[in-house]
């Protein structure tokens, strides 16, 4: 009986510790990923036999005008959501960082929405957006003598209206991360700038923002992924979760959900998840590249 070396013993322990998690990751993460790709190549209504049809699902998708509307909406959430939320959260964080009086209280007010349940708050916002006589916003506008907004009953206003609670809920997180980033900038930089006679704007553009680059990269990536995957708000704020009116708010994830669990067109739904996966990957890689390299 040869004595095992310490290294060997520890390697065995490592595999013992890893055994259950590895099985889990293979079964619940890797196998389903491959399965999703394989289902996307079939025509399958979940009950009958899977029929292999190659890339037909993708061909049908790209010829479907509704799918293009859905993709357009998805990118609209992204293109509106990321800049607005980042700009707002940066401004708030930048100034909140300079305030001492009531700092904790103000920060808490901005942060609390992050802890709410998206579904619950979607219903609150849905109520706010109603026309008179129940919608809070239109009631308030009415008292000021301003004409009411259609909000969720408008093909142009509905998407921003659905996006607002998503931005609102994420703001607290972004502010906290921005403030941590601001705190991490060495004070000596600012002192040096002061000595050089730099103004507030110059300090902001030449020191603060460049120093915040890693924070910004992180937040852009995280929030992009979040907005591209928007679902809870749309499902709960539109009639019967259809993403209406006239598909004006329907994002990709809702489209996937409807295809898979309303119509049981599993192949078609899986094909759409593959599209979502590719979009997320391309955008993440692209953003990491651009934001890291163009110094």
């Amino acid at each position: 009986m040869s004595k095992r070396t310490i290294a060997q013993k520890r390697a065995i322990w490592a595999w013992v510790f890893m055994a259950v998690p590895l099985v889990y990751f293979i079964l619940v993460r890797f196998y389903p990923t491959l399965d999703a790709f394989s289902i996307s190549l079939t025509d399958w209504n979940i009950v009958g036999e899977k029929r292999y049809i190659g890339f037909d699902n993708f061909v049908v998708l790209f010829n479907d005008p509704v799918f293009w509307v859905v993709l357009g909406n998805t990118f609209e959430y992204l293109i509106l959501g990321v800049p607005i939320s980042l700009l707002l959260s940066f401004i708030i964080a930048y100034y909140l960082d300079q305030i001492r009086f009531g700092h904790g209280f103000l920060r808490a007010c901005y942060f609390i929405p992050f802890l709410t349940t998206a579904v619950a708050m979607a219903w609150v916002w849905r109520w706010f957006y109603q026309p008179v006589p129940i919608g809070m916003i239109n009631l308030a506008l009415g008292q000021l003598g301003i004409a009411q907004f259609e909000f969720l009953r408008s093909t142009t206003q509905a998407l921003p209206a659905v996006l607002a609670p998503a931005i609102w809920a994420g703001l607290g997180f972004q502010i906290v991360i921005f403030m941590a980033g601001l705190r991490a900038i060495p004070k000596t930089y600012y002192e040096a700038a002061k000595v050089d006679g730099a103004g507030a704007w110059q300090t902001l553009t030449e020191i603060t923002l460049p120093q915040l680059r890693p924070t910004i990269v992180f937040l852009v990536v995280i929030s992009s992924i979040g907005f591209l995957r928007i679902f809870d708000q749309v499902y709960n704020m539109t009639q019967e979760g259809e993403g209406g009116p006239l598909n004006a708010t329907r994002p990709l994830v809702l489209h996937i959900y409807k295809a898979a669990f309303d119509d049981f067109e599993m192949g078609m739904a899986a094909a759409q998840t593959v599209v979502l996966f590719l979009i997320l990957m391309v955008i993440t890689v692209f953003q990491l590249r651009v934001l890291r390299h163009d110094r």
Binding site: R153, T155, P245, L246, D263
Partner: peptide
């Protein structure tokens, strides 16, 4: 044949008139 899809055609029909 599909209640939700066929219902949606009516919903959208009204929306095109009222909203657009």
């Amino acid at each position: 044949y599909s209640e939700s899809a066929q219902r949606k055609t009516v919903v959208d029909m009204l929306d095109r008139i009222v909203l657009n």
